[in-house]
């Protein structure tokens, strides 16, 4: 009797087949996506690897492709992204904490929430125009690192707020209750209990947002980041350029040698991006290990 019910039958064959089909399909799609990425990297590597050298990394722009380097754009990108983070992370995290932990749930918080979601979807060039009008002109920051970083900070702010709110929302209510029941104030509860638990999620969201910002070209061109600067930025008021703009500049030249420079620049940008993402994963794992 038992044997009869446990034996494979035609009735279960279809279900078993479907059960196998789905993972095979998913694996196929994953492989296709990875293959596309791999092909892209291999192609860029083939074009630009020969140009990668210490001189290229530390060199400044030149009319001769063989002399041109990327130091000014690399430092510009790093400087911009650090300043963007310094501006956007405190404001974004504080906003999320307020909205999630303090603000009354009502019509206003709904409106604010919907608008933040909408802001996250606004095309980056529009932030560029805002930055040009607000930071470069009205606040007279000029075409400086500060103006660029402020513009990018506005761009990533909604993403940081949304991911921080998600991370805060994922903190179990029982932890908050446990803290309140011991006589902790709201701020103590948020600072000592909620934020540490939410930190891995906040970090991941933040670094992914900054990774997006580092590849942005349009808003920085709009506010007038220079396509030809012969120096590394030396302060927040300094003019600057960034990697994507430098790459764009080289790609648009007719000479083949500059195309090679562009490919090498892309490799540098990709390495920078992957380093940031790896840092995000490392930080998240480190904090998660500490907690469990």
């Amino acid at each position: 009797m038992i044997e009869a019910t446990l034996a494979r039958s035609a009735a279960t064959a279809r279900r078993r087949l479907l059960d196998i089909c789905f993972p095979v399909l998913a694996l196929g799609i994953l492989c296709a996506a990875l293959a596309a990425l791999g092909a892209l990297i291999a192609d860029v590597w083939g074009d630009g690897a020969s140009r990668l050298s210490w001189d290229f990394m530390t060199g400044f722009p030149s009319r001769r492709a063989a002399d041109a380097g990327i130091w000014h754009a690399l430092t510009g990108s790093v400087f911009i992204i650090l300043l963007t983070g310094a501006l956007a992370v405190p404001i974004g995290v504080a906003t999320a904490i307020y909205l999630e932990e303090y603000a009354r749930r009502g019509l206003w918080s709904k409106i604010i929430e919907i608008n933040i979601t909408n802001l996250a979807a606004v095309p980056s060039i529009i932030y560029g125009l805002l930055g040009l009008g607000l930071f470069v002109r009205a606040l007279a920051m000029g075409r400086s690192v500060l103006a660029g970083a402020s513009t990018l900070a506005l761009l990533v702010l909604p993403v940081i707020i949304l991911s921080t709110r998600e991370a805060l929302r994922a903190v179990p209510g029982s932890i908050r209750e446990g803290s309140y029941a011991l006589g902790a104030t709201k701020w103590q509860t948020v600072w000592y209990q909620v934020l540490p638990v939410a930190l891995p999620g906040i970090l991941t969201g933040t670094i992914l947002a900054l990774s997006r910002a580092i590849g942005e070209t349009a808003p920085l061109i709009t506010i007038g980041a220079l396509t030809f600067v012969a120096f590394a930025p030396d302060g927040i008021w300094s003019p600057f350029t960034v990697l994507p703009i430098q790459i764009f500049n080289w790609v648009s030249r007719p000479q083949q040698e500059f195309q090679v420079n562009a490919a090498a620049g892309i490799i540098v940008l990709l390495v920078l991006l992957l380093t940031m993402n790896a840092t995000a994963i490392w930080l998240r794992d480190r904090f998660q290990k500490k907690l469990t």
Binding site: S174, I175, E177, G178, A181, L182, G183, Y192, V197, L291
Partner: peptide, 21 residues
Amino acid sequence: FQKSNPFPKSVFDNIAYGLRV
């Protein structure tokens, strides 16, 4: 509480937290 809700910290810190706050 009904469901035990220790903080995701060490045993020591769980108890010291109430003293600290």
